[in-house]
Structure formats: C-alpha cells, structure tokens
C-alpha cells in the first residue's frame, strides 16, 4: 500500500482549497516507463549522437513536434473531401498519396491504401505482426491498436471485437479485415452517415473519428 492510500488525513502538500479535506484522489504515481530497457537504450543513443555532433537536441525536439502535430484531424479532412467530391474520392481510391498531397498532406515514404466501407462491406484494420499504422496521416496509433488482445482477436473474431467497440452492423454486411503485414498502410473510408446532407467539409470533418478510420467504429452525426 502506498503511503497515503485511503487515509482521511490533513496534509500540507498543495491541493489549494482542499486542505483539511479527505484525499480527493489516489496518490499520483510516477510514470516509470522511462526506465524500461528500450527507453534507456534510445536515450543513450540520442545522447551519443548529440555528443558526436551528428544531430542536435533542437532537431530531435523539432522532429517530436512534427510527429505530435500529425493526427486524426488530417485523415478526417481527406475523408470529408471524399464524401463531398466524387471525383476526389476516385482519386483517393486509385492514387491515395497524390490525393492526400492535393490537401497539402505529405505522406513521405508511406504507401497509403484506402478501403471504402459500403452498404455491403465493412473494413477493419489490424497489424498482427507489430503495429503498422498510417502515422503520417493519422498520427500515433491508440494503445489498444498495439495490444496483443486486439492484434490477435481482430483476425480471429472481428465481429465480437466490433461489438465490444459498440459497433453493430446490419446482418447483410460482410466484415473484411485487413492485416497490415508489409509495405502498405491503410485508411478506412467510412460511410457518410444519414442526416448530414448539405453539411460543409469542416462540419463533416469534426464528426470523423480516429477509430472510424481504423474501422473499429462507424461515423455518427452526433459525435
């Protein structure tokens, strides 16, 4: 048991107005992930590269900033445009990298492949071997995408996994799982929900979630 666990006691360390009240939360646990072997190795490598003048600390910081700035909002812009412009949708399905570049999104070395949800097929993405993900379009993947449970169960019992995400599909819809094993990275083009007729691209983009572009969920107009 941690030192403060479960005690109703006065304490003098910083909860502002809470002084003298029962503990409002469990004690904050320090994140110890920086001590893992891989984290220590990465830090040592970074420090050596900086020490030898091969990279600078600012370049590392800048790159982290670039990676962190990417996210599902970029994929949502692409999907919203495809919903509003049938010609753009064709280009997205046939030349996905160029279609993203049209919106100023540079996918770099990524070979994007877009799979379209229809009235008869629902697509869902997994990487059973590791955690391949279109990071240059959607940012860092969610933790669940990298979990052993998702990676093993998505190919074995996809409908059960979808149900656990709260996703129920009509009985006549085929579930097609895509195992991202090699050089392609996948984007699901979700179905545009009913009730969004006449919406602007910006308004549509706001309801297009990360999980819908992985195929774990459907897009809802009230998201």
């Amino acid at each position: 048991m941690a030192p403060h666990d479960g005690h109703d006691h006065d304490h003098a360390h910083g909860h502002g107005e809470q002084h003298g009240q029962p503990h409002p939360h469990r004690p904050i646990q320090e994140d110890l992930s920086y001590r893992t072997e891989s984290a220590v190795r990465a830090r040592a490598l970074k420090e050596l590269l900086i020490e030898k003048g091969i990279i600078t600390a600012d370049e590392v910081r800048r790159q982290i900033e670039i990676v962190d700035a990417r996210g599902p909002h970029m994929g949502a812009r692409v999907v919203a445009r495809a919903w509003c412009d049938p010609e753009y949708k064709k280009r997205l399905l046939t030349t996905p990298n160029a279609a993203c570049a049209e919106l100023g999104i540079d996918l770099g070395e990524t070979h994007l492949f877009v799979v379209e949800n229809t009235a008869t097929v629902h697509n869902m993405i997994v990487c059973t071997l590791c955690s391949c993900y279109p990071k240059t379009l959607l940012g860092i993947p969610p933790d669940w995408y990298k979990s052993f449970a998702y990676r093993s169960r998505a190919v074995r019992e996809p409908r059960t996994v979808l149900a656990e995400f709260g996703t129920s599909l009509p009985d006549d819809v085929e579930v097609r799982v895509h195992d991202s094993t090699a050089d392609l990275r996948y984007l699901v083009l979700p179905r545009r929900p009913e009730g969004t007729e006449g919406w602007s691209e910006e308004r549509l983009a706001a309801i297009i979630s990360r999980d819908s572009m992985i195929g774990a969920t459907l897009v809802r107009p009230d998201a």
Partner: peptide, 8 residues
C-alpha cells in the same frame, strides 16, 4: 462471406 486481406 467474411474475409481477410493480407499482404504477401
């Protein structure tokens, strides 16, 4: 008719 597509 559920399916799975894999890069091989």
């Amino acid at each position: 008719d559920d399916s799975i597509d894999i890069e091989i």
